[in-house]
């Protein structure tokens, strides 16, 4: 297992419009990206588990070759700025990703 924070240079979240939150993970090296992409160790069920949401609320999951990046877009818990929102820009929702480890020639991803 390897910690995601050790494999990535960027781990961030941001609004993609007021109703969606998008997660970007940009890897340190293309080699690392290719390995993760091949193993598909980042996927919709993992994102759903991390964000405590049903997997249907993970709207897209993409491996984006030009940036050696993984991207997932989820439904926002509350639309930006609506009643009960806690993060208008959605830029501080990445913490669950900082705690995960991914398989590195061993078994499944672990969430805390």
């Amino acid at each position: 297992m390897k910690k995601l924070v050790e494999l990535a240079t960027v781990i961030r979240t941001k609004n993609a419009g007021p109703y969606e939150l998008t997660i970007d993970i940009i890897f340190k090296e293309r080699e690392i990206y290719e390995r993760i992409k091949q193993e598909k160790s980042l996927d919709a069920p993992l994102i759903a588990r991390l964000y405590l949401i049903p997997v249907e609320d993970v709207l897209t999951v993409t491996y984006f070759d030009p940036a050696a990046a993984f991207k997932a877009t989820i439904k926002r818990r509350v639309p930006s700025g609506s009643m009960g929102d806690t993060d208008i820009y959605g830029a501080q929702q990445h913490a669950p990703l900082l705690e995960i480890s991914l398989p590195w020639g061993d078994t499944g991803a672990t969430a805390p």
Binding site: N15, T22, I26, P66, A69
Partner: peptide, 16 residues
């Protein structure tokens, strides 16, 4: 290449 490609991801749902 990384900074420009990474920006292509920014604030979008599907980068392609």
């Amino acid at each position: 290449v990384d900074s420009v490609a990474a920006h292509t991801l920014y604030e979008k749902g599907d980068p392609y």
